[in-house]
C-alpha cells in the first residue's frame, strides 16, 4: 500500500462530527463564578407519589423509637382503658327535647358532654381575662 492510497482512504471516510462529551441537561444553570454545581437533578421529574413518599419518609425519619418508660407505659395504659370504656359503652341512648329525638352512642354523648363543658369553661375564663385586661 502506497502513501497515496492511505490519503484516499482518509478522504473517502464517513464524515462524522467529532464526539465531544456532553453534560446532562440541568434545569438550573451553573453559577456564574465558574464553580460547578454539586446538585444534579434527575432526568425525569419525580411523580406526585414519589414526592409525597419522600416527604413522608423525611418526616418519619425524625421520629425516634419511643422509650417504654414507666411514664409512657401509664400514658398508653390510660389511652387503652379509655378506648375500652368507650367501646363497652357504645349502646345508643335517646335524647328528647321539645318533641325532637336524637339517638347516639352513650360513649359519644359522654365525650360531647366533656367537649361542651370544656368549651364553656374556656369561653368563661377567656371572658374573665378580657374583662380584667380592659
Amino acid at each position: 500500500m502506497t502513501d497515496d492510497d492511505l490519503d484516499l482512504d482518509l478522504d473517502l471516510g464517513p464524515e462524522t462530527p467529532p464526539v465531544t462529551p456532553r453534560a446532562r441537561p440541568t434545569t438550573r444553570e451553573a453559577p456564574k463564578s465558574g464553580v460547578p454545581s454539586a446538585k444534579v437533578m434527575a432526568e425525569r421529574k419525580p411523580g406526585v407519589l414519589s414526592r409525597v413518599g419522600s416527604s413522608v419518609s423525611g418526616q418519619l425519619s425524625h421520629i425516634s423509637r419511643p422509650n417504654w418508660s414507666f411514664r409512657n407505659f401509664l400514658i398508653v395504659l390510660a389511652v387503652l382503658v379509655s378506648l375500652v370504656v368507650l367501646a363497652e359503652n357504645w349502646a345508643a341512648v335517646r335524647i328528647s327535647f321539645l318533641g325532637l329525638r336524637l339517638e347516639l352512642p352513650k360513649a359519644l354523648a359522654f365525650l360531647l358532654n366533656i367537649i361542651l363543658g370544656g368549651a364553656l369553661t374556656w369561653f368563661w375564663l377567656r371572658r374573665g381575662v378580657a374583662a380584667r385586661e380592659e
Binding site: F73, L77, L80, V81, V84, E88
Partner: peptide, 16 residues
Amino acid sequence: WGYLLVLAYLAAYVIY
C-alpha cells in the same frame, strides 16, 4: 376482648 387487651398489655410490660 377489652379486658384481655389490657391484661396482654400489662403482661407485655412486665416481660419487658
